[in-house]
Nucleic acid binder design. Structure first.
Lengths: 197, 197
DNA sequence: TGTACATCAGTGAACGCGCGTTCACTGATGTAC
DNA sequence: TGTACATCAGTGAACGCGCGTTCACTGATGTAC
């Protein structure tokens, strides 16, 4: 089999998958080009043919993460009938992803990202498309409700803040390390929003 | 002056301050023992006399950060008369700290913390006291209100999630990088909670 | 008040490590004719 | 269907860097008598 010598285009994807596994095992700081290459069964110089630097690998991992994130929300949304049920389902998907992929979730939303200038255009476009789609899911789920405080985006801002904070504080917290013993279910703290007239 | 040779106990604090400056300039990943030492004007071996490893330095920085965090909330709370005003003031303090100290805020709440086993007892106690005090401020501000969903801790969980998510998404986001153009003021999305009977 | 001595808090050199990146190379794949 | 050749996607060695940590040392400070 020639695969012993050549990856036939699968290496790029394999490196992304390896990076995700590394992060999930050891947190965002555990990622390195050399470890990704090793995990993909390839020499540490090989990734240079697929990413023009580690920043590009990180961007590709982030894009892939947002795609998984959006898919998780869509899966949860399927079958929810009422607007309230749909909104709650989207949020449950949000939280499910955060719980299942703690490190990726942290990685996706950390404010001190790398220099975006180093990311090449197609990867950047992919990243923006996937993260935009994730937000779109949330925005659509908020659409049937009367805007909070009468502002466009008010409900989105409230729901997004609430679910994101809950995810950070309660869903991805290290083993029981929160001042609130057992936090309430998310469904119990999501306010009732009146439907649009 | 003998300070040329000896720091007279001020080095420990100087190293913590240096670490905070480093993080605020370059994010949590910019911290290193050697850079802290350099910024404090001391050889890179000197910190070993004050911290038994970089994990201890990080813990001390985290403790100091929580102290600043609590102080910011207390400053904002001062002078607020009604329960609603106090709750809002605490939240504004929360957000003010996140905005002013983006990197510290991220550092304090990141889920993949170092091995806590390496932190020596007094630093650990200090850290727990300061982070406990921060949460206590928030809990006290929630106390006058009827518990959300009838659960103990319900209001705290809602408010904390909401303000924390808002801080992460809107207060510490990199230059305008949020799908919601201009987010609403936090005061507009904080629900009205009924007072206790 | 002096003196001997222990302790403290620095220095500078050295260590080994993992990292990203570059380089010449090589063998397999794909293409033109 | 063969053959010459360009391109692609790997390899392994080497580079320089910053890192945490250890070590013997030294001079200043504090203490016992």
């Amino acid at each position: 089999m020639s695969k012993d010598k050549h990856h036939h285009g699968a290496l790029r994807e394999a490196l992304i998958a390896a990076g995700i596994e590394l992060m999930e095992a050891g947190g965002p700081a555990a990622l390195s080009l050399r470890k990704c290459a090793a995990r993909a069964g390839v020499s540490h110089a090989a990734p240079a043919h697929h990413f023009n630097g580690i920043v590009s690998l990180k961007a590709a991992i982030m894009a892939r993460s947002f795609r998984m994130f959006t898919e998780t929300m869509r899966t949860h949304r399927a079958g929810a009938g009422t607007p309230r049920a749909r909104l709650l389902a989207i949020c449950e998907g949000y939280l499910a992803f955060a719980r299942r992929h703690r490190a990726l979730f942290q990685f996706m939303f950390q404010p001190f990202a790398e220099d975006r200038a180093q990311i090449n255009a197609p990867v950047m476009a992919e990243l923006e498309a996937h993260s935009g789609a994730a937000f779109q899911e949330l925005a659509e789920a908020c659409a049937p409700f009367e805007p909070v405080a009468g502002q466009a985006g008010g409900t989105e801002a409230l729901v997004w803040s609430l679910v994101h904070g809950y995810a950070m504080l309660f869903a991805t917290a290290p083993e029981g390390g929160t001042p609130i013993g057992t936090p309430p279910d998310f469904a119990d703290i999501l306010p009732d929003f009146p439907l649009k007239k």
